[in-house]
Simulated assay, not measured.
Amino acid sequence: MSDNPVFSGAEPVVRLSNLTRSFEQGGVRIDVLRGIDLTIAPGEIVALLGPSGSGKSTMLQAVGLLEGGFGGTIELVGTDASKLSGDERTALRRNHLGFVYQFHHLLSDFSAIENVVLPQLVADIGRADADERAANLLSKLGLAERLDHRPSQLSGGEQQRVAVARALANRPHLVLADEPTGNLDEATADKVLEQFLDLVRGQGSAALIATHNERLARRMDRVVRLHEGVLT
């Protein structure tokens, strides 16, 4: 673990203990995750490295409480998610987690700033404060002149920057990112990742970022590798 004072000795934001996930396919049992143990401290940025099909997305779905069927323990911000009701899991996800995917998944009928405002309104943040927060994030990402543009009017890199701002809008304790620059050319990917990491570090969030790119992974605080269902 890094000696970064932001998270040195701090209580983990994430603690996974013996996390497992299996599927049945054609009558054959496939063990995707085989006893994952991982802790992530506040402010720590961890790269989850592995080739396509290694189970990275499955692991992020587990940490993000996006589906069931997992064995073991998932503890987020000191709360054992297995002991929560569906509504409580939804509230935990809404209040403490942010998500960035390879494809931006922006709402096409809304402008850039509206896409970043909406999750704040869901979290009961006042409209004026939400507008200010959204404009500030988008400006830091170089989109000050694009606030009122809809996704179809933005380039791929700009769309992904809006997705980053949306994920960070509610100041989550943990950001989960699944190949967040995988759909961009190398130069744009480098710039978007740099801005993403700067913002995450600037607000003190932790992050678990899935990637198959060794070069990008080295820019993070720690690298864990998913191989045949276990972390190395």
Rank of each mutant, 00 (worst) to 15 (best):
72 G>S: 13
137 L>T: 08
150 R>P: 01
79 T>S: 07
173 H>A: 13
108 S>M: 05
81 A>I: 05
177 A>P: 07
87 D>F: 06
73 T>Y: 08
154 L>P: 11
74 I>P: 09
152 S>K: 06
21 R>I: 01
128 A>R: 14
136 N>S: 15
104 H>Y: 15
87 D>S: 14
60 L>V: 10
43 G>W: 04
151 P>T: 10
97 L>H: 01
38 L>T: 08
188 T>S: 01
156 G>L: 06
224 V>Q: 09
77 V>R: 12
212 H>R: 10
34 R>M: 01
40 I>G: 04
155 S>G: 12
59 M>K: 07
77 V>G: 06
223 V>N: 04
107 L>G: 05
217 A>M: 12
13 V>P: 12
232 T>Y: 11
57 S>C: 14
231 L>S: 04
227 H>A: 10
6 V>N: 10
146 R>M: 05
31 D>V: 13
18 N>S: 11
203 Q>D: 00
180 P>S: 15
210 A>P: 08
74 I>E: 12
115 N>S: 05
119 P>F: 01
127 R>P: 01
21 R>P: 11
108 S>F: 07
27 G>D: 07
62 A>H: 04
149 H>T: 00
98 G>W: 02
181 T>C: 01
187 A>W: 04
118 L>N: 02
2 S>W: 00
194 E>K: 13
69 G>W: 01
86 G>M: 03
130 A>Y: 08
16 L>A: 15
142 G>E: 08
110 F>C: 08
175 V>T: 07
117 V>M: 03
218 R>H: 09
52 S>K: 03
98 G>C: 04
92 L>R: 02
161 R>G: 04
11 E>F: 02
117 V>K: 02
83 K>G: 14
88 E>T: 05
133 R>C: 06
97 L>D: 00
143 L>Y: 07
170 N>S: 00
69 G>P: 07
182 G>N: 11
77 V>P: 02
114 E>S: 08
216 L>V: 08
87 D>H: 10
100 V>A: 09
187 A>Q: 13
158 E>W: 00
213 N>K: 03
226 L>N: 12
93 R>I: 05
162 V>L: 07
215 R>L: 12
156 G>S: 03
7 F>M: 12
227 H>Q: 10
126 G>N: 12
